[in-house]
Design a protein around this nucleic acid. Structure first.
Length: 332
DNA sequence: GCTAACGTCCGCCAAT
DNA sequence: AGATTGGCGGACGTTA
């Protein structure tokens, strides 16, 4: 089991020609002044080859090179600027070495191609920018590429979709390390959506199909507002004026997860929030998030958060910031 | 941890 | 002709 302090050093792998945005998102989050809510924040190292260009008009000037990736707890690999060429071999080797040394490795956008080349995605679920998802899947048949989600958390290997989804992934890591309250506070500072879960593709406008609106947003919003009630697929279908079969199909296409699984995830997130912010019993919380009994909540909570509700509460409530252990969350 | 009842969801296929 | 929909069966998951 990892601890928060284990994840404290974050290394950002800069490659020549890297888009500015890719660099900006993780820098803004991991390199910011520590929020008041925590007493230790991340230590960001930018690892850049000498004279690397950023965004075509900036030059990175860092005393740290790729060798420094190996000692980081968390390694972030932003987009490579051209996926038609194989990623730089020294970067691939450095990323592989870092992962072997126990680092958590996360990619943004086409950075997934670097992780793939390092063999870290083999047999795993992963995502990348929708424009390049087909290429990734073709080049690496062993990867279960999901182009429809914002990010995929496979524990020690995380991938995110294009550009702004990198912010979601970074927030997700902050949430994993420091809890929902800290992640939400940070999102407020950054003025971004506090939580777009990895499996929630409903807020991405993927401009591939002619109509990028799957028409489920109202339903999802309604469901979130009525989580405390028992909701079946048929209930949702009735609300969306669809047959259960069709809703099930549309739902999966739009969100990347099935109705029940999506509801369970939403309920667990709500429960996490309540555990952090209130003193309500697990029983009460189970009732408030529509999970029936505490036993049911515990079962799903364990599976999703990696720890029982009471442990989670102790981690983020009573003793918020001291090397608290959180398990590896399952894929969101 | 077991069980019984019930819900979910996915392949198949005909209807639209 | 091709895509979308909805009903059905049955394996599988969830709940209490």
């Amino acid at each position: 089991m990892r601890t928060i302090t284990d994840m404290a050093t974050v290394a950002l792998a800069v490659t020549d020609g890297i888009p500015l945005f890719e660099l900006a998102a993780p820098s803004a989050i991991f390199g910011m002044d520590p929020p008041d809510l925590v007493d230790s924040w991340y230590d960001l190292t930018v690892c850049a080859p000498p004279g690397a260009r950023v965004g075509g008009w900036l030059r990175a000037d860092s005393p740290h090179g790729l060798d420094d990736l190996a000692t980081a707890d968390t390694v972030i690999v932003p987009a490579c600027h051209n996926v038609t060429y194989p990623p730089p071999a020294d970067l691939v080797d450095a990323v592989r070495a870092a992962h072997e040394a126990g680092a958590r490795v996360a990619s943004i956008c086409t950075g997934a191609f670097v992780l793939a080349a390092a063999g870290l995605l083999e047999g795993r679920r992963a995502t990348t920018h929708w424009m390049h998802a087909a290429r990734l899947a073709r080049q690496y048949p062993g990867i279960d590429v999901d182009p429809a989600v914002l990010y995929v958390d496979e524990g020690s290997v995380l991938t995110s979709a294009g550009k702004a989804a990198g912010i979601d992934l970074c927030l997700h890591m902050v949430r994993t390390d420091h809890g929902t309250a800290v992640a939400n506070a940070l999102a407020r500072v950054l003025v971004v959506a506090p939580h777009r879960a990895g499996g929630q593709a409903q807020f991405i406008a993927t401009p591939v199909p002619a109509s990028d609106d799957h028409g489920l947003n109202d339903l999802l919003a309604w469901a979130v507002a009525h989580l405390d009630q028992p909701l079946t697929t048929s209930d949702l279908a009735r609300r969306a004026h669809m047959s259960p079969r069709n809703l099930s199909r549309r739902f999966t296409a739009a969100t990347g997860s099935t109705p029940l699984q999506w509801l369970l995830t939403q309920r667990i997130h709500r429960a996490q929030e309540l555990l952090e912010k209130t003193d309500e019993s697990v029983d009460q919380i189970a009732d408030r998030v529509g999970m029936g009994t505490a036993a049911t909540l515990r079962r799903h909570f364990n599976r999703t958060a990696g720890v029982p509700p009471d442990t989670y509460r102790r981690t983020f409530n009573e003793e918020p910031h001291r090397s608290a252990s959180v398990g590896e969350p399952a894929t969101v």
